[in-house]
Design a protein around this nucleic acid. Structure first.
Ligand SMILES: [Zn+2]
Ligand SMILES: [Zn+2]
Ligand SMILES: [Zn+2]
Ligand SMILES: [Zn+2]
Lengths: 137, 137
DNA sequence: CTTGACCTTGGTGTTAACTCTAAGGTTTAT
DNA sequence: ATAAACCTTAGAGTTAACACCAAGGTCAAG
């Protein structure tokens, strides 16, 4: 398989594949005489692993860790894998909480504003942001 | 007020104030003879507005829009202000949903892995990521 | 009169995950 | 034989919101 074929079958760009190579996520199995990258089913499966891990929310850096473990499975433990997953989970939850605070504040602000066509001179969103005690939250 | 005093009273760095100036969020009211930035109560209030808007989740670009409106209030409508708020709200909600999907997937993965000290040869997290039908979600 | 704390400008560095460009070599089909 | 489609490399650009640095000017206190 050449890079374009692999890219097409995965729905990613050739740039992405070269980028992953640079970042040690996927190495072609060989080069052709003319220097073209050559991939096998093995690499296809590895890319599928990478893409699934990304879908689940792992960053490329984390995917790299997981890949390393997956490749040398018997030198690593379940504990290790679960640890990475749990850490990511905590991170995601923290971010969700932050965004939920934003959501609370924004929806309260929006509720109080009439949203009408009159001038914003007394807009409650603006006054909430202006006043020291503006109840933004 | 000089930049250091304003920074301290707001709990931000002087770098941040200069950055905001570059990005048209806050202009000092004047310069001293020696070229120092001079700020008044007016700028202090404007910075408080900016910081409150940021706390609520607005990006600096959005804050800039809001500031423009706040400064020329009577040339703008409640509708406009509410629109910006609602748009941000939608964006935040979309992001929350995405993260919640991540959370779902990750917690299911984590639940299925025993997390023990044995080798990861049969780790269910890895197999879920490997298999085409691995139930990652 | 000399520290030391403050101020100035302009510039680079950070993070993530690509995307795009330029300048050129290779393959395949017509 | 030539155009289209593919491939190569190295490097720059994107976004957000600053942080940090160098080289130098300014100001108050002791
Ligand atoms: Zn109104
Ligand atoms: Zn309003
Ligand atoms: Zn296990
Ligand atoms: Zn496991």
């Amino acid at each position: 398989m050449k890079i374009g074929e692999l890219a097409k079958s995965l729905g990613v760009s050739t740039d992405t594949l070269r980028y992953y190579e640079q970042h040690k996520l996927l190495t072609p199995s060989a080069r052709s005489e003319s220097g073209y990258r050559v991939y096998t089913q093995q690499q296809l499966r590895q890319m599928q692993f990478i893409l699934r891990a990304k879908e689940v929310g792992f960053s490329l850096k984390e995917v790299q860790e997981l890949l390393q473990i997956q490749i040398e499975k018997h030198q690593h433990s379940c504990e290790e894998v679960k640890e990475i997953t749990i850490q990511k989970l905590h991170l995601v939850r923290t971010r969700i909480e932050e965004l939920q605070r934003f959501e609370q504040s924004l929806s309260k602000l929006a509720q109080r504003c009439c949203g009408g066509p009159e001038s914003a001179d007394f807009c409650s969103i603006l006054t909430a942001l202006e006043d020291v005690d503006g109840t933004c939250n």
